[in-house]
């Protein structure tokens, strides 16, 4: 084996090594401190959340056996040996599932329309006035930060039980989430075409329609589709608080220990989410090419 390096004399080497160690030690100390702070926070949080590792270990078996139980029919057989029995309530569930999807569709579309109407006010480059921008921004922030299900809780009281509350809750939350994303797209839009259109004597509205909209519409549709996918998941739990959809059935099945029903409903939800995930992904790729997928 050939050597390409002659080892330096010990003294020179020691000096070099010392310098290296000193430089590295400073970095290491920083990392260690950050690690210690993080670990301390974990310990405090562990006490706060009443985490008990022993509980976890004793109950972990229960977690596994829970899945064993939900995959067993009343007759003691595995669920997939008798699919008819497993999905005995499929007509009812499919109807509720359709309602769930409809809730998220209507909620997303209403949210997207509102977000569309509001986002030109909030984007820095298109906003007609700073005070308007500030107010709309705060409103959107509020709608985005408060979880959809909290809106649903309140709306159930205001509008009565039923899917209407769920739709409105999803619409409000989506307005907040999409409004922010939409205005970010507008802020990234190229302003030179706007200048060009304005130079022909066009109004603010025309500028938005002909210079900004063509640049941003693909991004809008892409985000709206993504939001729809998220909202399907969200709508599946709206029934927990009485705001419509399949959640109502699920919560009853879980609480009353109708084990095989739990797995049947979960499977329907997961399959639906998959199908919608794949469809919207395909749509987004087809409509706007690869770059819009991110």
């Amino acid at each position: 084996m050939a050597t390409g390096v002659s080892i330096l004399p010990a003294q020179q080497l020691a000096a070099l090594n010392d310098a290296y160690r000193k430089a590295v030690a400073r970095k290491r100390l920083k990392t260690m401190m950050a690690g210690a702070v993080f670990f301390g926070a974990l310990v405090v949080a562990g006490i706060g959340a009443e985490v008990n590792l022993r509980t976890l270990f004793t109950y972990f078996g229960n977690f596994v056996s829970y899945f064993d139980r939900i995959l067993t029919l009343d007759s003691g057989q595995r669920v997939w040996t008798d699919v008819g029995e497993w999905f005995w309530g499929w007509q009812k569930w499919l109807k509720l599932l359709a309602e769930t999807i409809l809730i998220s569709y209507v909620g997303t579309l209403i949210g997207a329309v509102f977000a569309f109407a509001l986002n030109f006010f909030t984007a820095q480059n298109t906003s007609p006035g700073p005070w308007l921008r500030f107010i709309v921004r705060r409103l959107l922030e509020f709608a985005r930060t408060v979880p959809g299900i909290v809106f649903a809780l309140v709306f159930v009281i205001a509008f009565g039980l039923g899917p209407m509350a769920g739709v409105l809750a999803i619409a409000v939350h989506s307005t907040g989430a999409l409004g922010k994303l939409f205005s970010e797209i507008v802020e990234n839009a190229d302003m030179k075409p706007v200048e060009g259109i304005r130079s022909t004597g066009a109004s603010w509205l025309s500028c938005m329609r002909f210079a900004v909209l063509p640049q941003v519409s693909a991004g809008y549709a892409s985000y709206a589709l993504l939001r729809f996918e998220i909202n399907v998941r969200e709508a599946s739990v709206m029934g927990f608080v009485g705001a419509g959809g399949i959640g109502q059935e699920l919560v009853v099945a879980i609480r009353k220990f109708y084990y095989s029903d739990v797995s049947a409903i979960l499977v329907t939800i997961i399959v639906t989410v998959f199908v919608i995930d794949i469809t919207t992904g395909w749509l987004r790729a087809k409509l706007f090419g690869k770059e819009a997928r991110a």
């Binding site: 706060g48 959340a49 009443e50 985490v51 509980t55 976890l56 109950y59 229960n62 977690f63 829970y66 299900i149 998941r233 969200e234 599946s236 739990v237 927990f240 699920l250 919560v251 879980i254 609480r255 220990f257 979960l266 939800i269 997961i270 989410v273 998959f274 995930d277």
Partner: peptide, 19 residues
């Protein structure tokens, strides 16, 4: 594909109510 709230319900069945 399963919402956090559903997981919470499942875990409540397993480890009981609480954080």
């Amino acid at each position: 594909g399963v919402d956090t709230l559903i997981w919470a319900l499942v875990w409540i069945n397993v480890v009981g109510l609480g954080p």
